[in-house]
Amino acid sequence: MIPMNHQTNTLLLSVSTFVYVGAMFLYLFGLVFKKKLLDIAGFVVFMAAFLIESAGLIARWIESYRLEYGHIPITNLYESLIFLSWTVALTYIIVELKYKMRKLGFPVSLTAFIFMAYASFSPNVNSRIEPLVPALKSNWLTFHVVTSFFGYAFFALAFGASIFYLIGDWYTKHTNGKVLSYLPSTKILDDMSYKLIIIGEVLLAIGIITGAAWADYAWGRYWSWDPKETWSLITFLVYVVYIHLRYSWGWHGRAAATFAILGFAFVLFTYLGVNLVLSGLHSYGKA
């Protein structure tokens, strides 16, 4: 057993960062050399990284109780970056088990690695476990953050699927109808990207609503046009447009994929941009 001390969690999380790198290279070689075995190895290593990361998060949670702060590890920039990489990884594992889409493993492990590395190695990100200000001490915290972050994760995967769509589509167009053998068919990618987006949209809606309910409970105002609130609404509306273009005007394929890729810029800005660039209630970025 690993001895439990105050560094166990950050150690486990750093280790998982490197294991994600390993998975990323296996997936990359799988793409280059088109060997199925490499993809499977990539997935196994990816699962290992995910489990180590989960252990790290749990160790951190336990540690916060030992420090008598006792809160779920999703409350500052460091924890949020790690939790986001964890949700992206878990969402990918679910998608992988459903669609058998190992090729998505490369961009996902790259994304997980980038978030983990930013959290672990950036001098601007503080990895200490900190106590909570009174406003954050609420059961709404868990529900609000978990739903919002899984929403982000589904949008991130839709973004990846859409990029693959454009690659597959471009290849077919420039080779007179040949298909990229190592990618799923563009039809599946198009359908997948749409399905990931609608799940992301429902989760984002629940995230916004739980945030509003919490704000009402803590401050008596369910909506105050705080930048984070406004940007999450903006992101929601951007995907509302995507859904209506798809349902009412039959947008799909290249147009829908391009829209999904651009839409993800709004997700990223809502998650990080607002905290790093703008000011407001969700100010962990000022650390």
Partner: peptide, 17 residues
């Protein structure tokens, strides 16, 4: 509807900047 949503999105950004 799409024009209105995009207008709301576009203007709502101003208030966050």
């Amino acid at each position: 509807a799409i024009v209105l949503i995009l207008s709301i999105v576009g203007t709502a950004i101003i208030g966050t900047v």
